[in-house]
Nucleic acid binder design. Structure first.
Lengths: 189, 189
DNA sequence: ATGGTAATTGACCATTGTTCAATTAATGGA
DNA sequence: TCCATTAATTGAACAATGGTCAATTACCAT
């Protein structure tokens, strides 16, 4: 009634995550079923549960990848050869772009309230924020205090959260994003 | 196999909404089923579909109520006898306080994402925002343009959304809220 | 009384996340 | 080489979900 497949065709966490990411990004977390993911891979839905405890676990694995991506993006900007003021601008704008380019993941990272599994990820967001805050601090010539940086972050988050909800792309709102960032930069002048 | 109940015990939109609100507030939208709501009321789940087209429809009726409450709060502040600058401050701070004093309402209004009918009920939020924007506009001596007011709103929203998620009360974060508002007011100076 | 309408029921449907016994491929030791 | 053990996969099965609808009953106007 059931069988194991040849070893070179075996499923892996990586393959599942790849297919799942594609589907989650396209249709959103709630509108993607484990059966759809399995079908995409040509496997039975049960097999996914051999590799991930449940759907949320699979999704959080993706979210972890995304936080790493966010960190990477930040460091990319910091490595660029720009004046501090320009870099600062790019860091803020980059945050918005990241959020809107990875909407379903951003929601899980920083929007959706889910007590049961929120604790699972608590380290990563704090860790990522710390890097963000450090960057702002140094790029501002060590003028910005912690509260001000937090204020800036919350304002960026508001932008991303709102446009995530309405499903706009970064391109849709880029002009407004740049304007928002310019306003935030005034606090650091 | 089925029966209609005595007229004084009849179900109504209001009764359903009351029970639904209670449950949504406690457990969140996704974790409340139509059967739970019906059980709470002592009715069959099918009866709710006589009064509301579907779960989302019921949900959005609650959202409308909450927006009316927000409008009321705004007008309360505007009626106060204060200098425009003080009033402006109170409008911004009042928005945050409303959000954190009515966290589950706020989530329903502006955080929770429900793709299916998101476009359907865009009137109320827009209407409420329009009042908010008008207030800011006049209190700023007609200096603020539309984009700047929108920027301010998004920044306020970020504050509320974040602390809603972590479940902090207004009292918990009042100092930070006042600081955030002071920053936002600089854009209008 | 009677007929029409309004409200309620619960069986029913398709779909979901999840579990698990059964099954088969791979592996390694004798 | 053979056999026991393990690893991976299957799909039937389960409970819960949102939603539909014919049947049923209370109400009301005439």
């Amino acid at each position: 009634m059931a069988a194991r497949k040849a070893v070179e065709q075996e499923l892996s966490k990586e393959k599942i995550m790849e297919a799942a990411r594609e589907l989650f990004v396209t249709h959103g977390y709630r509108h993607v079923s484990m059966r759809q993911i399995a079908k995409e891979l040509g496997y039975s839905h049960g097999s996914i549960y051999y590799h991930f405890r449940n759907k949320a676990d699979l999704f959080y694995s993706l979210v972890n990848q995304d936080f790493a991506l966010l960190d990477q993006k930040l460091e990319e900007v910091l490595r660029q050869d720009l004046e501090p003021a320009r870099k600062l601008e790019q860091v803020l704008l980059g945050y918005i772009q990241f959020g809107l380019d990875n909407q379903s993941h951003y929601e899980i990272m920083l929007v959706i309230k889910d007590e049961e599994l929120a604790s699972k990820l608590q380290e990563k967001p704090n860790q990522s924020y710390e890097k963000f805050a450090q960057a702002i601090y140094y790029l501002s010539g060590q003028k910005a205090n912690a509260a001000l940086i937090w204020s800036i972050f919350l304002s960026l988050h508001g932008f991303v959260a709102h446009y995530c909800r309405s499903g706009h792309s970064f391109a849709d709102v880029e002009t407004m994003a740049r304007f928002h960032v310019q306003n935030l930069l005034k606090w650091l002048a």
